[in-house]
Amino acid sequence: MALEKNLAPGDSEEKVRRQTAVYVYEAPLRLWHWVTVLSVLVLGVTGFLIGRPLPSVPGEAIDNYLMGYIRFAHFSAGYVVTIAFIGRIYWAFVGNHHARELFILPVHRKRWWSELWHEIRWYLFLAKTPKKYIGHNPLGQLAMFCFFVVGMTFMIFTGFALYSEGAGVGSWQDQVFGWVIPLFGQSQDVHTWHRLGMWFLVIFIMTHIYVAVREDIMSRQSLISTMVGGWRMFKDDRPD
């Protein structure tokens, strides 16, 4: 961020791209990323086990609380991921301009569309060299919005709607999210959609990790280390 801010207003983006390191992801954003990673991991595993429980435990019911603990972990992680997501939205307002990339697609910019096309060609092995990007490349940005932002919002709404059933009529969860259930039909429909949403996110995670590793190796900038340290490193000095 600091380096970018040093630029004069007339300087082109190419000049920025010539620099070898740019501070992109600020600390709160990186923290949000890794908190979300952990929570989603917990949510995925426990959610899978709520739909398909483990084999029955022996002994008296009074001595066991396995399903209770699994559900507790699921609900807790759900709260963590939701609060983190709200914090992330807040950070889009107060953080640097890269923090807004997830939520606002610059569809009005011609350049974004041409770079999106270039990225698609790069992934179809039609373009020989990738371009350099400080933030997300347009294809990545589009995927993050369609899969992560939409997917996560869907899971938060359906998840809290299901949680409101246990919290009871009149609870704040019911007042805020209860309308979701009749929207889908009935509770069982929301359960099914929430399950499909889990698989949607599983597919997102698979792609996300693959693309991050691939870009880290094949693109002209750092990816994985950037989400740890915040700095985007470029591998060459060519501006484009």
Binding site: G51, R52, T192, R195, L196, M198, W199, F200, V202, I203, M206, T207, Y210
Partner: peptide, 17 residues
Amino acid sequence: NADTVGMTAAGVVGAGI
């Protein structure tokens, strides 16, 4: 069910990856 649909989709995407 949701799991067969999801696992199939994840399998296809995995193979694609």
